[in-house]
Amino acid sequence: MREELNVLRGEALRDIASATDSPALDRVRVAYVGRAGRLTNAGEQMRHLAKEERPEIGKLLHEVRQAVSAALEERTAALQSAAEEAELAGVDPTLPGVARAVGSMHPLQVLQRRAVEIFRRMGFALAEGPDIETEWHCFDALNTPEDHPARNEQDTFYLPDGRLLRTHTSSVQIRTMEGQAPPVRIISPGAAYRRDEVDATHLAQFTQMEGLYVDEGVTLGDLKGTLEFFFRELFGPDTSVRFRPHFFPFTEPSYELDVRAAALGGGTRWLELAGCGMVDPAVFEQINARRGDRAFDPDKVTGFAFGFGLERLAMILYGVPDIRMFVENDQRFLSQFAP
């Protein structure tokens, strides 16, 4: 019996090893450990053994069973993994990925969204106003005299009824203050229109971002801090900001703002990017007269305002050579601004 079991073990292990696929291995499994398998039969024959032989042969039988089932398990795993390997051999993982193409943002939208995010972090809310404006909102309320050059038919688009297309988003300052008492802290991105010949740096319709902060105790220092923070957030911490005195009818003092930053053409020169200043008391008085109250009493509240053109900023920031590319909507251009 001992001899038989040893032979059985040798043959079983050899048959297991030589099974080359799962069906063959299944046949081997049935032949040895199936209901009528050889190893099963060997167990049956234990009954016929002498009592004193039983412990020893029983032990051997157990060992053989263990060895065979371990070999079967191992072979099963080996064959499964070989089959998976074979299946995967047909897959070329270096073929390119396949996905549905997503659309792109418009570069002006990319910039506008970034700008809005930064100002919102500082506590500015958004405001809106119409593109078709009255002369009062666009000029008179902004302290622009009747015969100011900007009001002329050469520079401003008019409608037959005497209204106009706003020449700057500053009209939203007026719209906002008409409807809201201080504190007022808003930004307003939107379209503006000027009667310019369209060329590589001019569009007759362009995009501006306006800002206004009116409250008790707003100072020139607040204007500086706000715009310095904004441009450093936008262009990086190495950004320098310079305020150059200028003249606008609706602010006093007024400044043009120059920025120098590595992100802007290497940071070698100052680029004029924005106009700003402290809201002129005459603007507040126009608003008070319109509102019929003293909510914007220049002895009590002060404020600052600023504005900048998004196209110019985007051209410098993204290296866009011609402003007309923003309205051409060439998909090869737009796709470079995929989110």
Binding site: V102, G103, S104, M105, V327
Partner: peptide, 15 residues
């Protein structure tokens, strides 16, 4: 949502 559907954003002239 529109970009996810493969649409790119255009901005054309108001005129």
């Amino acid at each position: 949502r529109l970009r996810a559907q493969g649409f790119s954003e255009a901005r054309t002239s108001h005129f």
